[in-house]
């Protein structure tokens, strides 16, 4: 009887999201109840703040075209990891010598620790990420075009 009732609720696809959301809400409560978690001290790619550096939240040391040591999972797999971290384009190098606020925009320039992670050591993640965007875009464009040609 109960199974019948449950399957009747689930067979209406309008109810799926509320059911799933309720499951997620219950799971959030369970997570809250099992807190606190121990934060592992031994993290990959730790954040360092170097006071006074013009590249501040992203200063990982070293002039361009030198290799610094970064804490990746498998350093053996990326022998050149550390070169991208120190790289600055001529323009951003100039900026970093002029102003203390280069650090806030370094994300936008080729080079830096984030590019190292995104392109090099965890590059596979970043290959899948545009793929997801690409697929979603294909869906949207297909539906949009189909309606247009009607």
């Amino acid at each position: 009887m109960i199974i019948q009732k449950i399957s009747r609720i689930l067979s209406n696809f309008d109810n799926i999201l509320p059911v799933f959301a309720a499951a997620c809400a219950v799971m959030s409560i369970i997570t809250l109840l099992t807190l606190p978690f121990v934060y592992s001290e031994n993290q990959l790619y730790p954040k360092q703040i170097v006071p006074g550096s013009s590249l501040n939240p992203y200063d990982r040391g070293g002039p361009p075209f030198t290799q610094v040591e970064i804490q990746s999972q498998y350093p053996g797999n990326s022998p050149t990891a550390g070169y991208v971290t120190t790289y600055l384009t001529p323009f951003s190098l100039f900026l970093s010598q002029q102003t203390l606020y280069m650090g806030t925009t370094i994300v936008a320039h080729p080079g830096g620790i984030l590019d190292e992670i995104l392109y090099n050591t965890r590059g596979l993640d970043t290959v899948f990420e545009p793929t997801i965007l690409f697929i979603a875009f294909a869906i949207a464009a297909y539906i949009f075009r189909r309606e247009e040609h009607k």
Binding site: L44, K47, A136
Partner: peptide, 19 residues
């Protein structure tokens, strides 16, 4: 809270936007 977190946010954000 590490550099890794910033690098993971980007894919997470993009998946949300894409869907």
């Amino acid at each position: 809270g590490t550099d890794l977190a910033e690098a993971l946010i980007l894919p997470g954000l993009v998946v949300g936007i894409a869907e």
